[in-house]
Amino acid sequence: QTVFSVSSWVPPTHTLSVAQKNWCDALEKESSGRMKCNILPKGVAAAPGTFDAVRDGLADISYTVDGYTPGRFINTQVAEFPFLGDSAVPTSVAYQHIYTKYFAPLGEHRGVKVLGVFTHGPGIIFNSKQPVKTVDDATKLKFRIGGGNINELSKLMGFNTTLKPAPDSFELLSTGVMDGTFFPDESVASFKLNMIKHATTFPGGLYNTSFVFMMNPAKYNALSAQDKAVVDKLSGEFAARLFGEGWDKVDAASRELQKQQGVARVQADESFIKAVAAKQAELEDKWAAAASAKGLKDPKAVLAEFRAEIKKIK
């Protein structure tokens, strides 16, 4: 019997931990109990160190956010772009297809066995002060943000943002140090952001996040051919769909909660969306240059195929 040490850097109730546990249950069932997981009480490393932790065999299975180690992954930034999709399953599955076809051979995730890649739901602007419909509304407020494409985009848009870790959000917003934050729906519930009063949505989301679910390669290589086949079956689209469904479920639950909390939901004005698209075009040029330097052929076409794939799955 093979036992995998599984690590998670969010609480056991978080959708990422739950989806990971569901994957483990599927693994145990499909292998008739030959493989199972030992989920560790505490994550073996903070989020940014998790990739290395799996690579070095500190944990056998875990997941991480590619953007938490800036400079390391370029191709995966496509999954951080705005206007991808309105739910996590299609973007995750389409991302997985593109990843398998174009990114995996380039080996950015070298050192780990990638089980799957996925995204969360559409990124939204939340705040506790006023409705935000235009660029002007947004530039009046102070926002906490994480890293990645949205950080670059915010700079170009002239938003007043501060980079702070996501778990600081409650303190920053409840004390009024910050007026708002950029999050998927889920986070309003999971970070207990009960001070949020306004949400501004964008068709397809203002931003997204690229996740990777991975296994220590030595552990994988030591498996029997039969067990490898089970892991392979549960890798790729299966994993992407599983994590995506998890995100969609908690996003929906959080939207219900936001209704009770009295969060007013508006869509950004056409002018706002156009402004974001214009600035994003610059970033996409920059990304395309960086990605071709890393060996990706015709990045713009890959991006177009990614967007088309998302629409197709929807």
Binding site: D52, T69, P70, G71, R72, G147, N151, L163
Partner: peptide, 17 residues
């Protein structure tokens, strides 16, 4: 060595780690 292998940088100022 690991940081240089992957070219890790900080988020905002993009300083090498």
């Amino acid at each position: 060595d690991r940081f240089s292998e992957y070219g890790d940088i900080t988020v905002h100022l993009q300083l090498p780690m």
